[in-house]
Nucleic acid binder design. Structure first.
Lengths: 267, 267
DNA sequence: CCCCAGGCAAGAGCAGTGCTCGCATTTGTG
DNA sequence: CACAAATGCGAGCACTGCTCTTGCCTGGGG
């Protein structure tokens, strides 16, 4: 729009652009506050406007629509969650793979428990008319990228996940089919230069584990564990520990899963 | 309300009560249709009223609030899903445990794929102000009851799920802790006379598997598998098959997991 | 230092929502 | 058959997302 020739687009120089950016952030912050308290479905653009002392129509100067505001929120939350998981995993001792796995898993749950509304926005029922734009998919993959990195490293150290169930007569055909199953994920990874050479079974098992972790957190936050599991924190640790074992993540590398040592899951 | 002395409460005799019940069902059916097309968040009582040729306020003669209508929908959907899973499992040959497991799992996914709006209502983000009343929890457990029945039977036939990862020094303390983890679930089961004597690890693994199945379906329906997995049907089967193996569900009983035969997962 | 274009906020308005209340009308029961 | 209860309607309240017009007011080029 402005800056016809020289000014760098990413760096607003004029006072007006500065103010604009500040207000844009203020609106986003107010929206996050509402999101945290009321949940995504109840996120009202008018209420956000009131919180920042504006009339609703004024907000449209900064976000084209409710969906645009939603997209900004989604990207911010994916990045926050991804950063939390990355940091937790990075802080664990490098040679203790189970600890790294558990740290990443716990960071996921801790963030979700601390931000249930945001979690619901990211992983709950999609907003009816809303379709997530492309720029959300990359931040969305940060968590699973951490997980697969740990699994791939465990694999490189000689561990192997629980083998895929052999299929009666045609075992090899099955193995090929499995590779095709996760071809999309592998392509995606290769496109940004990570773990494109991971064994198929490791990819499959990691995707399964990620799904199970999500399911566990989702059940806890959405109330499907009420009455069955009381200590949800310990329950989550138990799940994460078993998943690690199924993935062949052991403390000492180079062993089979039978005689290997499992992560310590005390809290 | 009426029937002060003799008429059975559950069996309306008067024509008026008959008509009332019919209209009540008609409203519920219209709401389900809207739910299927627009999703739970967009479920509008006014739109439902229009569909049945009423004005919105008239609906309140039959359902006290939108939440009451929601509750009726939830119960109906839980029952429909539960019945579908029960039927599928019952139709599989009794001695083929993997087939029974896979049939139950597929019935779950098939129903969810056929009814994404309903699935979102049951397992997606809870409606903001809404708190599910007690009478929804029993129908909600029908699916997991089928799953645990299969696992318990496999256990009785001598199979064992993948063992829990031993915890370094204090293995027994861990085992006791695990039992406490799922004490709620066991209590719940005991209260209605089912599987109260199932081994702790079987209960834990079943709950984990149920969570993983939910997560898989949820990821598929909510678009978190786009780009990673293309053939979601085969992916689901692969997940269900691996979960069965982890649960110790094999075709021939009494074997260890290493030399056992796995389910055939061709589609 | 001036001045005005353009960014910006306000407000009215539209179509929709859940829900309440008073009134008329039907209905079928005793 | 008469009367009360059950029922449907419509207006109205407070709210939502979003559009469009109006007018202020200020940033920054001349």
């Amino acid at each position: 729009m402005s800056d016809p020739h020289d000014a760098p687009v990413g760096t607003p120089r004029t006072a007006r652009a500065l103010a604009r950016e500040a207000i844009t952030r203020e609106i986003l912050a107010a929206a996050r506050a509402r999101l945290a308290t009321d949940g995504p479905a109840a996120l009202s653009l008018r209420a956000v406007a009131r919180d920042v002392g504006m009339v609703s129509s004024a907000v449209y100067r900064y976000y084209a629509s409710r969906d645009a505001l939603l997209t900004a929120l989604i990207v911010e939350c994916y990045d926050e969650l991804g950063a939390a998981v990355e940091r937790a995993e990075a802080d664990a001792p490098r040679d203790d793979l189970p600890a790294r796995w558990l740290a990443a898993c716990r960071a996921l749950r801790d963030w979700a428990v601390a931000h249930p509304g945001e979690f619901a926005l990211l992983y709950g029922t999609p907003v009816p008319g809303y379709a997530a734009p492309r720029r959300t998919v990359d931040p969305a993959t940060r968590v699973v990228r951490v997980l697969i990195a740990v699994v791939v490293e465990a694999d490189a150290r000689g561990s192997r996940p629980v083998p895929a169930p052999a299929d009666g007569d045609a075992g090899d055909a099955r193995a090929e089919g499995d590779a095709a199953l996760v071809a999309g994920a592998r392509e995606f990874a290769a496109a940004r230069g990570l773990a494109h050479d991971a064994p198929t079974e490791a990819v499959v098992r990691t995707l399964m584990a990620w799904t199970a972790l999500f399911g566990t957190v989702s059940f806890e936050l959405f109330g499907h564990l009420v009455g069955s599991v009381t200590d949800t924190g310990r329950w989550f640790d138990a799940v994460a520990g078993r998943l690690a074992a199924d993935l062949g993540i052991h403390r000492s590398a180079g062993r089979g899963r039978a005689e290997a040592t499992a992560p310590s899951v005390g809290r």
